[in-house]
Nucleic acid binder design. Structure first.
Lengths: 220, 220
DNA sequence: TTAATCAAGTAAACGGTGTTTACTTTTTGA
DNA sequence: TCAAAAAGTAAACACCGTTTACTTGATTAA
């Protein structure tokens, strides 16, 4: 229950302050995004000086990275939990897709920031972790494995490359997630506003992706 | 050729300075994105004081909005031009999809910024233009019309809602655009790096979306 | 042509940001 | 108990977007 045996009081205190920082950052970031999260304001909210933050995090970006990565960790957990349902394969796959999107738009700032980071430049810098070591990489591996399972079960054509399909499916899910996160009115413009709820649209969309995968690429 | 007849020298001078601002902003923004674009630096690069910028633009955001909207205008033009090809309908549709993505990733900062703007809050503020009046709205209308044409030509099921399909297709294109814009290594990780060039992947992906639309939603 | 008016442009300041440096206080371990 | 290490901070640095008060230059009316 408590780790008094292997940690000193100082270490425990340090972890406590660190957690206070992360927790306060999490709260303001999830509501106001990166704009609202300033080191000064953050320090003030937990009754420390701004400089104190830098005893725990090398930079604001480092702190933000922790928020993003931990969010993506929860996202992966949600998907894994969804995958444990006992429906048919296609229903399970669609449910996983939908869970990804729903979790993403539940914390729009987290999700968008998780992808907005390293825009163009060197993706393989010395400090940057390998893709496979990140939660994003974990998500991709799960997705790729799930699609391979679909091939093995005969739901997708034997010729389908699961990795390629995973990239496609991921891009597609990412697209709707970003759309719904950034443009609240997206699924409801035009004259026919309420023909579909966002949830219904997500299901429809996931089905669309899966249908696209079911058809063989080399078609008549 | 010249508009000396309907404009005064002062107006022409003003437009010239304004253009210098936009042009300088365009250059640095397309290479470094919003981070690299500061009013002070911009003013310095065109030999004006920072305050001078505010005689032409109410705020930095207003200037950025102009860059984004004009970029999206070029994007729409490219798509229209692509649509004038004389192949079969499906090939034309796929070409339009691909053009959208290729144009988007050609100016990744512009494209990302065009969607990153109004994150969560009031999308229908007094200053914000109606969706249909924006270049984005124009793009959506074109897409929607093209898909309706596909229904009429019998390429898509009669039951397909073109608006719904347009939303889906747009989200999907948006997804791959963002992926390729922000994660250069995206289409080439894993052990099999160079199995496909980005261009080939884009074509494959667009085909996937179209295939998804071709299948009826109420399936066996 | 002269005087008055309006637009263009600017220096300096305001309030904010992330971050670093030099310093003080507190805690720890021998 | 006492030196060393860690925790914490005030103040500064170098930026940022933006506003205010002001000067300079061009335009227009008398």
């Amino acid at each position: 229950m408590d780790d008094h045996l292997h940690t000193t009081p100082a270490e425990r205190r340090r972890l406590q302050v660190r957690e206070a920082i992360v927790s306060a950052a999490e709260e303001v970031f999830s509501q106001e995004g990166e704009e609202g999260l300033s080191i000064r304001r953050l320090a003030d909210s937990i009754n420390y000086s701004p400089a104190a933050i830098y005893k725990y995090f090398g930079s604001k970006e480092e702190l933000l990275d922790e928020l993003k990565e931990s969010f993506f960790g929860r996202l992966v957990e949600h998907i894994h939990a969804t995958g444990d349902g006992e429906d048919g394969y296609i229903d399970r796959a669609r449910a996983c897709f939908a869970t990804y999107i729903r979790t993403a738009i539940d914390k729009p700032h987290h999700y968008a920031a998780a992808f907005a980071g390293h825009a163009l430049p060197n993706a393989l810098a010395p400090g940057v972790p390998e893709f496979a070591e990140t939660k994003k990489g974990e998500a991709f591996l799960f997705l790729s494995g799930m699609l391979q399972e679909g091939v093995d079960l005969g739901h997708f054509p034997q010729s389908m490359d699961a990795t390629l399909a995973a990239k496609s499916a991921w891009a597609a899910m990412h697209g709707l997630s970003m759309m719904l996160a950034h443009m609240p009115t997206f699924p409801a413009f035009g004259p026919d506003d309420d023909t579909m709820t966002p949830d219904e649209f997500i299901d429809f969309y996931c089905d669309l992706i899966i249908r696209g995968l079911e058809v063989d690429h080399d078609r008549p």
